[in-house]
Amino acid sequence: MKRLLQIEFIKLVTYAGFWVPAIFWAVLFVLCLFLGTQISVNIPGLDSGAFFKFPALWNTTTWLASWFNLILAIISMIFVCNEFSYKTFRQHIIDGLSRTELFLGKVLLMFVFAFVGFILVVLSTVILGLFYNNSETWPLVFDTLYLPFVYFVQAFAYMSFAMMIALIIKNIGLSILAFFGYFIFLEPIVRNFFPENILMFFPMKVISNLTPAPDIFKVSTNAQFTTTINGQIVNNAPAASFEMPLWGNSLVAVGYIALFLTISWYILKNKKL
């Protein structure tokens, strides 16, 4: 495992195709969070600072970070397709790696990417928490502590799907087109033909539902209400509509990860390199 990771790290350490999107991902995420703290929504009864108070803060950071998971998916596709265009998968087999090791190397790399995303979310949440919380809201930090872990599952799920697409198509541009074509057009269109109790099991639906928008955000867009008493939020909005309980959604997402990885392994095992 260590050897496979070392090999993957040598590949990315001087690769601009990795660092440019990775830095873009991190900077944009932090910038969006920072800008979010500066926005003051002028809706009576809504304290926009509540987005950055526990327990809603975990929801805010993971939801925002989830949008940037698509960049992680693109990076994963670049890394897999590069191996085909440089014929280095083939060379690694010649030099002594097994096809299973090729597969494991990429899975480990995706695991590391998801873990770095997880750390970034946790760090930014803790730092924002220090600025926007007080002795009353800090104790709520553990209420939704599961959310960064769910974010990790989501990041890994997007990358697993991306890897499967890349292994099938082998070309970076076409893989990215296929990924977004499925994510933005194909699945949403197909979902329209299915009833609610079935469409919620579609892969992109399941994965994107892992990090729902913050409750307060939903409240404000639904023009429903939160009242304030002496400046404190009393959230009488309905609970987040997860469509499926989050634990159930997470389990199905893990199932999809297993499916994507199994298909990827099967393709790599049998494909002419």
């Binding site: 050897r3 070392q6 090999i7 040598i10 590949k11 001087t14 690769y15 601009a16 195709g17 590069n82 440089y86 014929k87 280095t88 083939r90 060379q91 690694h92 010649i94 030099d95 002594g96 790696l97």
Partner: peptide
């Protein structure tokens, strides 16, 4: 086998480091 297959953005030393790790 056939053509030399290496990472174009890596140096000779870095490419051989990958081969050394594999072997």
């Amino acid at each position: 086998i056939e053509t030399p297959n290496f990472y174009p953005y890596l140096t000779a030393q870095q490419n051989l480091s990958i081969t050394a790790k594999i072997k």
